[in-house]
Design a protein around this nucleic acid. Structure first.
Lengths: 208, 208
DNA sequence: TTCATTGCTGAACGAAAAGTCAATAACTGC
DNA sequence: GCAGTTATTGACTTTTCGTTCAGCAATGAA
């Protein structure tokens, strides 16, 4: 006789990650308040009680989602800058295109919109996100621009301003797509936009 | 004897606008779900019951807020384009700077972030917002760029793409400021950024 | 001053969703 | 197999907040 397969299994180690993944999906789609823990549990293949085994409450789950999702993305880009040789505009393109790439596929890219929506309700978390992601990526791009200026490839501009001008459009387009996917009659291709933005940018940064 | 001033007054005509104003403030700060009608009422100087005299329910109040706030802003800009003579880059600057100006002072500018956060929870409203605001302003800028191309002032680019590239950074910076005002260690001046963005943009749009 | 009208209040209701916990079923070592 | 351990369940309680409405008080006309 084959043993009847159990109604559920004990998987203490896998649960937290699975619950966080489910929560990320729902939070970034509906927002924090509009997401029911019952739904998170169902999507994670458990019941609500189990969620409370691993997370103190809804707010702590939310924090865990942000913390777990946010950090790893930037390390890759930082080494890319460190090791680069050649034209700085080429590096800029590498960074922008690989970023656009990740935005299109990674589940984690929903975090931007989520943080924008909930920042004022979770001040400490907002600070964490700003430090770990916003400022850090801003610095990354400012760094590239700065080196470009020093090598004479770019004209003299405020690097931090430029960094904002580089990052803002991509994030915005992604956020827009996420929010208005159902209504936008002429959706943009993220990578095509990244290319367009890059061309505009590089010509804007060159000497006149 | 002076008559003891009444505990409250009847002000049927003024109430709706006051309630909408209060709701706008709280919605754009905390989001739709996290805003309590008790708080809206208190901020408007009434009680919850009064809110229900003028609005069917919370969702209808939300829709009213968006509708009342959003529409008038664009009309001004559209006449500006219609009546313009001279260099198209000058018009572009006029539009960007006046926009940045309004963003800094008008209470209505919190709507962008609110819509981004709640769009997926209110599909019909999202469609309304996209049609009345997003697409319309995108068309506005695309129009300017297009005329600039035809007059030979700008090189040939996709006008709709360019419109996105023009509008996205300003909106994004505004949204960022709103979300992360408390954490951002180096806040940007919106008008200064608008100027920077414009310079980059115009050089990017000129012939090589 | 009085009365009818009605804008407004605030207490009470109920649904929905957060949070709790005793019972239970899956696992583990003997 | 059996017994002890514990991860998981699901029904339960609690809380929060949108919504209702009977009654009160401001107003204006007579």
């Amino acid at each position: 006789m084959n043993t009847p397969l159990p109604r559920w299994q004990r998987r203490k180690d896998a649960r937290p990650a699975e619950i966080i993944q489910a929560a990320l999906t729902l939070f970034s789609d509906k927002g924090f308040a509009a997401t029911r823990l019952d739904d998170v549990a169902k999507l994670a293949g458990v019941t609500k009680g189990t969620v409370y085994l691993y997370f103190e409450n809804k707010e702590e789950l939310f924090k865990a989602v942000v913390r777990e999702t946010v950090v790893p993305a930037l390390e890759f880009a930082e080494t890319l800058v460190e090791e680069h040789q050649g034209a700085w505009s080429d590096l800029l393109w590498q960074l922008l295109s690989s970023w656009a790439e990740r935005m299109e596929h990674a589940t984690s890219s929903g975090i931007s919109r989520l943080m924008i929506a909930e920042a004022t309700n979770f001040p400490e978390l907002a600070r964490f996100y700003v430090d770990e992601v916003v400022v850090r990526s801003r610095r990354l791009f400012a760094d590239v621009i700065n080196r470009g200026i020093q090598s004479g490839e770019f004209r003299e501009v405020d690097p931090m301003m430029a960094a904002r001008a580089v990052t803002a459009p991509l994030v915005m387009i992604k956020v827009w797509k996420q929010s208005f996917a159902l209504c936008d009659t002429e959706p943009v291709d993220l990578k095509a936009f990244a290319r367009f933005h890059f061309d505009l940018l590089v010509q804007g940064l060159r000497h006149r």
